[in-house]
Simulated scan of single mutants.
Amino acid sequence: PASASSQPASGPLSAAPYSVRQSVDANGVTIREYMLPSNVVFAVTWDGPVRPNMRALLGSYFANYVAAGQSGVRGSGPLIEGNDDFRIESAGRLGRFFGMAWLPRLMPTGVRPGDLE
């Protein structure tokens, strides 16, 4: 019948390849952690009035962040660095900072960094 065709299709789209856990830190920074079904975090994004505590946010990957910051040109421009193991994009100005860090090898098939908000 016609009513059956108006139902949304269920299938691969209904099962996202990841879940998102969102929190807001004490400074008002919104942090989103993107997790695989195995509860492994493969990406984080942030957006807020200040830069988040990067050591707490990145954990064992903090050293990669420090190395990325030191390899780039010093200044107030955006940080876009990384390799096959760890990538980071961070930008902002007084009152608004945002960015994301991700592990390319753990990114689900078909998901691009630009898909994460």
Rank of each mutant, 00 (worst) to 15 (best):
A2K: 15
S3F: 02
S3R: 11
A4I: 09
A4R: 11
A4V: 12
S5I: 09
S6V: 10
Q7N: 15
A9R: 06
A9Y: 07
A9T: 08
G11V: 11
G11P: 00
P12F: 07
L13I: 11
S14T: 15
A15E: 11
A15K: 13
A16F: 04
P17N: 12
R21F: 01
R21Y: 04
R21A: 10
R21M: 07
Q22I: 00
Q22V: 05
S23Y: 04
S23C: 01
A26R: 13
A26V: 14
G28I: 15
G28H: 14
V29E: 00
T30N: 05
T30P: 01
I31M: 00
R32P: 00
R32N: 12
Y34A: 08
M35Y: 03
L36K: 07
S38D: 12
V40M: 04
V41G: 01
A43W: 01
A43N: 05
V44G: 00
W46P: 00
D47H: 13
P49L: 12
V50S: 05
R51V: 09
R51F: 02
P52L: 02
M54V: 10
M54F: 15
M54T: 11
M54D: 08
M54N: 09
R55V: 14
R55N: 14
L57M: 08
L58T: 11
L58D: 01
G59D: 08
G59H: 14
F62C: 01
F62T: 10
N64E: 11
V66W: 05
A68Y: 08
G69I: 02
G69Y: 04
G69N: 15
G69Q: 13
Q70V: 03
S71W: 03
G72N: 09
G72M: 14
V73K: 12
G75D: 12
G75H: 13
P78D: 09
L79M: 04
I80Y: 01
I80N: 04
G82E: 02
N83T: 02
N83C: 01
D84M: 04
F86H: 09
F86L: 06
R87A: 06
R87M: 10
I88M: 01
A91T: 14
A91C: 02
R93V: 04
L94Q: 14
G95P: 01
R96C: 00
R96A: 03
F97I: 02
F98W: 14
G99N: 08
W102A: 02
R105K: 14
L106F: 11
P108W: 02
P108R: 06
V111H: 05
V111C: 02
G114H: 04
D115F: 01
D115P: 04
E117Y: 13
